[in-house]
């Protein structure tokens, strides 16, 4: 397995290089750059813009720029944000805690609700309850998250006043105090609920289908024949087998943890990686955009590896070699 892991890790390198080349070229081919766009005639100095473009090398051919960028990148220099005028690493690191927090809370919601719904639907397939759950899941899958976000804000923040509508923390609270943490949790709940409850579809339906399938297998019939109680059959024998495929998702979730939710974060003005990514693309902040892209690519590949390894561990029938 160690050999397998190393092999997989090594094979990531060319893949990452390829991804970076494609993303970099696409990014540079987008019209405009960090200095283009809105011009304020009384406040914009064309000489300065030209100077900066020259200094940052925007006038060089894309391939030259790519070579410069990648050689800095592998040496650990991720570049400087043209918007924030700080190292890209700093800008990103500042946002990671918020994103992680939001992602973990929303994943907990997803897991809990998907688990309950999946178990119920799997145990009582083709009943009214199952159909309702399926309907809900596909609706949630179909509704764009920005619509869900705005509706949630209007109902829960503006009408009912249960949750704050924007930001990640209350204004003026000192870091480290009890109120600070309470406020953090209060701010994360609504976006996390929107994200979590809208994302249950795949988990629920996978779990349901697996439970139904396993319910028809021989070992279940044997257990029934022995007189094992229905609840024990479902909660112990079937569930254990049905969870295995879900582990694959865990790998994907690693990337989700960081990538956050681009749109949801923006609507809730939740300062995380997602909103930063969106902003860096629209403002052509190449250093930040490329760093986030590479981070996410790596985590996605890494997550896949973790999923494969976990699969091998929980299901001894699968051999990784």
């Amino acid at each position: 397995m160690l050999q397998y892991t190393i092999r997989r890790l090594l094979s990531m390198i060319p893949l990452l290089l390829l991804i970076s080349l494609v993303v970099f070229s696409l990014a540079k081919m987008m019209p405009g750059d960090a200095f283009g766009g809105e011009i304020d005639p009384s406040n914009t100095n064309p000489q300065y813009i030209e100077e900066m473009r020259e200094k940052l090398g925007y006038n060089d051919p894309i391939i030259v720029q790519y070579g410069r960028w990648i050689s800095n990148f592998v040496q650990g220099d991720f570049g400087k944000s043209t918007v924030y005028k700080k190292p890209a690493v700093e800008v990103i690191a500042q946002r990671i805690p918020n994103t992680l927090f939001l992602a973990v809370v929303s994943l907990i919601f997803t897991y809990v609700f998907a688990f309950i719904m999946g178990m119920y639907a799997g145990r009582k397939p083709y009943t009214l309850g199952d159909n309702l759950i399926a309907t809900y899941n596909y609706l949630a899958l179909a509704i764009p998250s920005f619509v869900a976000g705005i509706v949630a804000i209007y109902i829960f923040s503006f009408q009912l006043g249960w949750f704050p509508f924007s930001g990640s923390v209350g204004i003026g609270l000192e870091e480290g105090t009890f109120e600070y943490y309470v406020s953090k949790v209060r701010h994360v709940l609504l976006p996390a609920l929107v994200l979590g409850l809208m994302g249950t579809a795949s988990y629920t339906q996978f779990l349901r289908n697996d439970i139904i399938e396993n319910g028809r297998k021989d070992f279940v019939r044997t257990a029934r024949a022995k007189g094992t109680s229905e609840s024990k059959i479902y909660n112990k024998h079937i569930l254990r087998n049905s969870i295995i495929p879900l582990i694959t998702f865990l790998g994907f979730d690693i990337a989700t943890l960081i990538s956050g939710a681009v749109i949801t974060e923006t609507i809730f003005t939740f300062p995380g990686i997602g909103s930063l990514f969106l902003e860096s693309v629209s403002r052509r902040d190449y250093a930040v955009m490329m760093s986030i892209t590479m981070l996410l690519s790596f985590l996605t590949l890494f997550g896949n590896l973790v999923a494969d390894l976990l699969y091998g561990i929980v299901d001894p029938r699968i051999r990784l070699d």
């Binding site: 993303v23 969106l278 693309v281 629209s282």
Partner: peptide
């Protein structure tokens, strides 16, 4: 799986570009 990775990245980029375009009315 590798294919889906690249694909999802491309999708994300496309989406981001699209959103960037929507967002530009602020400027």
């Amino acid at each position: 799986m590798k294919k889906s990775t690249v694909w999802s990245l491309v999708m994300m980029l496309v989406l981001a570009v699209f959103l960037a375009a929507c967002n530009n009315d602020s400027s």
